[in-house]
Every structure is written in C-alpha cells, then in structure tokens.
C-alpha cells in the first residue's frame, strides 16, 4: 500500500472530498471566470464598480473605464506586480493541493511539499505587501511598523503554513506506521 493512503470512507472523508471540489471551483472562478467576465461584459463591471487593487490603499480605478487613472509610483507598480504574481502562483499551488485531496490522498510527502511552498509564497506576498504599503512612510508613521508586520495576515499565515507542513509530516509518519502495523 502506498503512503498516499485514501481518505476513510466515513462522512468526514466524503466531506473533505466535496469541500475540496467546491474550493477548486471557487479557485477556477476566481482565476479564469472573473477575468473572462471582466473582458466580456464591460457594462456589468462598470455597474458593479470593479476596481483593481494593486496593494492595500493603492487602487487603480475602473478596469474598463477610460477615465484618468490616479498616479501610482513606479516602485509601487513593480512591487504590486510581483505581489500579484506570487498570489497567482500560490493560487495554482493551492489548486494542486486540492486536487490531491479530491483524489482521496490526505497525508503524503506531496502534501507536505505543497503546504511548505504555500507557506513560503504567503510570506513572500506578505513581505511585498508590507513593503508596498510602508513605502510612502508619511501615510502611517514609523511607530506602527511592528504593528503592521504583526497584523499582516499573509506573514502570519505563511509561518503557520510552514508549521502545518511540519505537522503534516508527522501525520505522514503516523500513516506509514499505521500501514506497517499488521
């Protein structure tokens, strides 16, 4: 029997599989559906006032509107583009992780690898977001830098993702031991 043991056929196993399918659909809607709707139905986008948020507090006006865009510093644009790239890679990694859960695997080295990667990507996104937000220092003042770092959900989530990967690794070992038990 492989280490990628299937989920138990209990209700909780079924629940995990169904939920991973739902999350996969949400990721697909977010990554493919929304950009397509944005391109295909400009009227709907204008009606809903869809904005592209480069970084917190750095909103670039209506996506389809021809109205003049607010000035965004080049450095902020670069950081924003990098942060968006990291975000999209993280979404793809998350999709792969959900694929594994949908197939019924629960504790495997592949899960651990993907969880760890997600953690590092989240920390990267957090660092870029903080850098982009704190770049115009006059907006917040240095006194709250520590508060900002601690308040960054991406940073906290990233560190927890790495810790979860370590715990998942323990789960893998438990699973292997269980398989070896006659």
């Amino acid at each position: 029997m492989s280490t990628t043991e299937t989920l138990s056929k209990s209700s909780s196993g079924r629940r995990i599989r169904i939920f991973s399918q739902i999350l996969k659909a949400l990721v697909l809607i977010y990554l493919v559906g929304l950009p397509l709707v944005t391109l295909a139905v400009p009227a709907l986008v204008d009606f809903l006032e869809v904005h592209f948020v480069l970084l917190p507090g750095q909103t670039i006006g209506h996506i389809n509107s021809a109205a003049s865009q607010p000035e965004v510093a080049p450095s902020t644009k670069i950081i924003g583009a990098l942060a968006t790239t990291v975000y999209l890679i993280a979404a793809m990694v998350f999709y792969r992780l959900l694929n594994l859960y949908e197939k019924g695997a629960i504790f495997s080295p592949a899960h651990v690898r993907l969880f760890r990667l997600l953690g590092f990507l989240a920390i990267g996104k957090g660092v870029l977001t903080i850098a982009g937000t704190l770049l115009p220092l006059d907006r917040y003042g240095l006194g709250l830098v520590l508060f900002f770092i601690l308040h960054s959900a991406w940073m906290v989530g990233g560190f927890f993702g790495i810790m979860l990967a370590c715990i998942m690794d323990e789960g893998c070992k438990l699973k292997e031991e269980q398989e070896l038990t006659v």
Partner: peptide, 25 residues
C-alpha cells in the same frame, strides 16, 4: 478573507483525520 476562513475549517477537518489515525494507532 471568507475563503481563507473556510480553508482553515477545511484544515481542521484534515487534522481530524490525523487525530483518528493517531487514536487508531
């Protein structure tokens, strides 16, 4: 944020599977 919350609940379910394995062991 809402999806993140749901993902955390999802992780709790996965950990629950781990708990069952541990109890069985």
């Amino acid at each position: 944020q809402a999806v993140t919350g749901l993902v955390i609940i999802f992780i709790a379910w996965i950990m629950d599977e781990g708990r069952k394995i541990k109890e069985e062991q």
